[in-house]
Design a protein around this nucleic acid. Structure first.
Lengths: 123, 123, 123, 123
DNA sequence: GTGGTCTAGACCACA
DNA sequence: GTGGTCTAGACCACG
């Protein structure tokens, strides 16, 4: 991972964790890397990972067990799915459609872009 | 307008200007509000508007005539269109499609959302 | 202020801010000290104050205006009152009564303690 | 028992032991569960129970007999009572009354809450 | 000037 | 070993 995006690193790490969960790489109730481990593997300061984990815990995605570590929460997957879907429907989609209106792009063209993207992926 | 979004205010104002142009509210070579006027009407610090205008001038969307004011540039509309379309295709769409993959939303559903949105708009 | 309690300093600072608001020392929509100012006046690291403010903003007690500072939010006083009262009723009171049961202290004695406290205050 | 409270688990366990004693569930000079037993029954690390017992022994609430186990000390009940009452009077009550002042709750309302609680208990 | 983020490094309590 | 907090100091974007 490189943290080039303008988004704060700690949020990018949070997204990374959510992605792991969504992709079933980290299962429910499974232990996730310790703050220090992840900090090393991402070559980031432990404080930054700490912040990500604290944020995710507040979002009820992960939970902390004292002296043991962080775990994907019981309904972690569902929670992530809910959060991401909500953001998608309420934030991303309206913006997308609004942009399309402004640029005069109709739904047909959008389908075309999607199809083209799919073909790129195959390669 | 309220500037609650996490995007910098000066960019939100720039977007606002671009929108005016795209919607043909501000025509080519037309004078746009002075920094102070816009600052007052948006209840924002003039420095902020100044920065927006500077950014738009750098992007060749508007041009300054000393002692007169800012004007939509000769190819302002085309320029805005190009900028927005490029950002849309290179930034927004890939992110959108990636999100859709993660959430298991396919193109059919997207069409559905678009259709529903269209019906809401009519009301 | 001395931060002797076992509670984290940043939460003690948050409590301090809430107290100011409850006592009407800081009014609604009023600007509160900048992160750096408060850090100096409490002789604490700015990061710590920052954390307190971030926490209070999440609780909708204060709001941030970019480049300007933090302000007591519109319904800041009501919000603080609500938060504190809820904590009092749902957390503190049940614990209190449970302790009283265990120690065999009845309500009459409690009234007595309250009365005695009141007389101490007068001095 | 779940150890979600922010208080250290070993103190929560100590509280649990004190409660047993106060409620006369565990009598004076009676043997209390071994470290391992209690650890299993609370599904907690034995080290944690060990720390609780050490703390209670230091407080003269329980005593260890090498090779035999832990016992409620001779004046265990009185000791617990004293400790809890002192904490109640010196720590809990002042904080409570201070909160009441801040929230504008007077002693009459407190009596009301107590009465209501009592009625709930009856059901 | 404002807040926001990040690093480095330290110390502590806890399990 | 775990996480939690705090400091010191730095840099940045923003208004």
């Amino acid at each position: 991972m490189d943290f080039t995006a303008d988004k704060p690193i700690y949020l990018q790490i949070a997204d990374y964790v959510c992605e792991r969960i969504l992709l079933h790489h980290w299962l429910q109730a499974e232990k996730i890397p310790s703050v220090r481990e992840l900090a090393v593997s991402l070559s980031v300061n432990p404080n930054t990972v700490q912040r990500s984990y604290a944020w995710l815990e507040e979002m009820n995605v992960i939970i902390m067990q004292r002296g043991v570590g962080y775990f994907v929460s019981k309904h972690g997957l569902a929670r992530v799915f809910q959060l991401k879907k909500q953001a998608f429907l309420e934030d991303d989609l309206p913006k997308l459609f609004y942009q399309m209106d402004l640029l005069g792009i109709n739904i047909k063209e959008l389908n075309q872009f999607y199809k083209v993207r799919g073909e790129h992926e195959k390669k």
